[in-house]
């Protein structure tokens, strides 16, 4: 009986220590998104460049990478070269399109950003009061969503996209549906 109690106590202590250890790796700023696997909120937003209105539904049938950014966001500057490169590399793909949402920003600020760091060429929606961003559960920048051809959110990247992100994360999600590629 005494022996049993000792084992139970030891197991309980180890269990709690294990919980602590697994919690150490968690980033408290990284909130898991409940949107994965659910239909993305559709939006109709003015374009940053005063062009025609941007509607998410018009991209249905293609994978859409929706990148939330702002000229005020330092990490977006670091991410930008990769976005330029990714837009160039995927320009020929008919099943993939990129879309930017410039939120909590001014048109002048955002245009200045693109002029200084390069314009990746894809369409940019303008969301000054971040209603789209809140609708998408965004709480920081940059945040990037991968939406599948049916309009379902498949992945959320919190923080900048990194070199090789597309091959490592997006392609494995896209490939099963395009086995002939």
């Amino acid at each position: 009986m005494e022996y049993l109690w000792k084992i139970v106590l030891l197991a309980a202590v180890l269990f709690i220590l294990g919980l602590f250890a697994s919690g150490l790796g968690n980033d408290s700023r990284n909130i898991p998104s409940p949107l994965i696997g659910r239909p993305a909120s559709v939006f109709h937003a003015p374009a940053l460049d005063d062009g025609p209105e941007i509607s998410l539904e018009s991209f249905r049938g293609r994978w859409v990478l929706v990148n939330f950014w702002g000229s005020w966001c330092v990490s977006c500057r670091h991410e930008h070269p990769y976005l330029l490169q990714l837009a160039k590399n995927t320009a020929k793909r008919s099943d993939f399109v990129m879309l930017g949402v410039d939120f909590k920003d001014t048109r002048e600020g955002a245009k200045g950003f693109l002029q200084a760091l390069g314009d990746p060429g894809y369409r940019q929606a303008f969301d000054p009061d971040q209603t789209i961003a809140i609708d998408w559960g965004v709480y920081g920048a940059p945040e990037t969503y991968l939406v599948d051809p049916q309009g379902v959110v498949r992945y959320k990247q919190v923080g900048p996209l990194f070199n090789g992100w597309f091959e490592k994360i997006a392609l494995p999600l896209m490939e099963p549906k395009h086995e002939n590629r």
Binding site: I31, P32, S33, P34, L35, D135, W136, G137
Partner: peptide, 8 residues
């Protein structure tokens, strides 16, 4: 908000 940000 729950649908978008979860329990948090």
């Amino acid at each position: 908000f729950f649908q978008r940000y979860g329990d948090y």
